[in-house]
Amino acid sequence: MTLTFVLNGHPCTAEAPAHWTVLDLLRDGLSLTGTKDGCGEGVCGTCTVLADGRPIRACLVLAAHVRGRALVTVEGLETDGRLDPLQTAFAERGAAQCGFCTPGMLLAAKALLTEDPAPTAQEVREALSGNLCRCTGYAKIVEAVLAAAPGRS
C-alpha cells in the first residue's frame, strides 16, 4: 500500500502493509521513534500524535487512514531548530521524569493550545486525561502547559 500524506509539514510518501497502524508506520516504516509504543490498546496515551491538528492514538488508527491527512509527531514540534514553547516549558519546569509519556503529553497539550490558547487548569487536565504518567504525577505537567499557553500571561 502506498500512502501519501503530510508529515511534520513536509509531503511524505511511504509504503506500508495493510495491517500496519500509524504507530508501526512511524516507528518501523519511517524510523521516527519519538512516538512511543505503550499499551497498544489506546489507553495510555504515549503514542499520541496529531492528525489534522487533533490528537489520535497512533496504535489504534490504521496507517491507511492517514492518506491525505497532516500528521505531526514530537519530531515536528520544533521550528527551525527552536523548541516549541511547550517543550521549553516542560524542560524548565521539570515536567518529565523518565520521559516516556512526554511526547504524547506534548502533542495532547499542543492540540489543546491550538484549539484554545487560554485554557483553565481544569481544561488542561481534561485534555491530558488520556495520557498516563507513571513516574511523578501531573502537577508540573499541568503547570508547564499553562505556562506555555499563549493566551495566558
Binding site: G42, G45, T48, A51, R54, P55, I56, R57, L60, V61, A108, A111, L112, E126, A127, S129, G130, N131
Partner: peptide, 9 residues
Amino acid sequence: VASPAIRTS
C-alpha cells in the same frame, strides 16, 4: 467518552 484522542477517531 474516554479521552480526547479516542473521540477524534
